[in-house]
């Protein structure tokens, strides 16, 4: 399943701002990303799929957009 990944803040510095990935579900994507960028294992980040925060595993459908979001610092 090809999905779109967008990353923000300090996470984007590690992974790049946006890229495509191939994964069937969120847990697989996360472990693939940690294999590729081991430092991610030490970083705190929230995940949104199609602009909704997701706390558990999520089965992807084609063209889903996954956002990797480090702790917020607006204001």
């Amino acid at each position: 399943m090809v999905i779109k990944v967008i990353a923000f803040g300090s996470i984007a510095e590690i992974t790049g701002k946006d890229f495509s990935a191939n994964a069937s579900d969120l847990d697989t994507l996360k472990s693939n990303l940690i294999d590729q960028f081991p430092i991610l294992a030490e970083r705190k980040f929230a995940i949104a799929v199609n602009q909704k925060l997701v706390n558990e595993n999520y089965i992807f459908t084609e063209n889903d957009t996954v956002a990797l979001m480090p702790p917020y610092s607006g204001g």
Binding site: Y72, S73, G75
Partner: peptide, 13 residues
């Protein structure tokens, strides 16, 4: 203001 700081996906470098 509190909600903005807590809830909005904004990052300051």
């Amino acid at each position: 203001v509190e909600q903005i700081k807590l809830e909005l996906p904004i990052w300051g470098k």
